[in-house]
Amino acid sequence: MKLDLHTLGPLVALVALIILGALLNPAFLAPANITNVLARSAFIGMIAVGMTFVITAGGLDLSVGSMAAFLAGIAIIAMNFALPSVGENWGTILLGMIVCILGGIAAGYLNGALITKARIEPFIVTLGTMGIFRSLITWMADGGTLSLDYGLRTLARPVYYGGIGWITWPIIAFALTAIAGEWIMRHSRFGRHVEAIGSNDRVARYSAIDVNRVKLMTYVLLGLLVGLATVLYVPRLGSASGSTGTLWELEAIAAVIIGGTALKGGTGRVWGTVVGVLILSLIDNILNLADLVSPYLNGAIQGVIIVLAVVLQREKRTADER
């Protein structure tokens, strides 16, 4: 019972934020605002679910923000290129989506292979690929902005803005990713292996787990989810530039840690990550809706809440160990 209360910590924080938001501004609970917040959480959310697996297995990926920008860039180039031959139809958009997803898988494989096969520290590998992807998108866009053809853009818009009633596609995709992620982590062989490797790499090896393969797969899974997030991102503004997706990696990592996954690996909590993502987006939303502090201080408020959330968990955990 005591343990339950501790793991529910992030959830309590989320509920507290929702109540605070509702008290500060009645517009906060309007369906339009809820849709906005959930839909804009979807990009970071899907990436953070993938990041949960990578971190749980004892890894780290700093390249996801740049990777998303790069994938958005190649998808836009591919769609603009295919436009004259395929025409202005869903075929072209589908092609762009496939490019995003395959590109994501390939980029994740590249990170994973360098880490497991070349045996380089994840921090170094992904710091390197972060710079590479960021430079590539800036170079592809010639320092400016890559824009999707206007007709295609109009056609693809419903991918972000459409949906079933006020539940838009990004929200549905985020929910499905979260449910699948939670199930894989708790109930699949892969998920169990991920936690085993994160807890004790050597024991996992002795238990005949193919450690390198599982680690590699966590990066591929993350790449795939970055690709999926980009599929939803491109129709929103129909553009990609050198500033797309900056700091997404840190937001995703912060969400994972707020949610109760240990940065050193071993314990993964996908639902916690989802709560972490929602906490981060709600802080932003509430600060914009209520004139609580000077906008100069928004970053400070976020920082305090992130650190506080983690401190509370740590204290509870050490209390448990006693």
Partner: peptide
């Protein structure tokens, strides 16, 4: 009515404007 930082960035400006519209 209000001033917030969009950081000369399309995505940030999109988010800030959505919140202005709700508010």
């Amino acid at each position: 009515l209000d001033m917030q930082h969009g950081n000369w960035n399309r995505d940030d400006a999109f988010t800030v404007m959505q919140d202005f519209l709700s508010k």
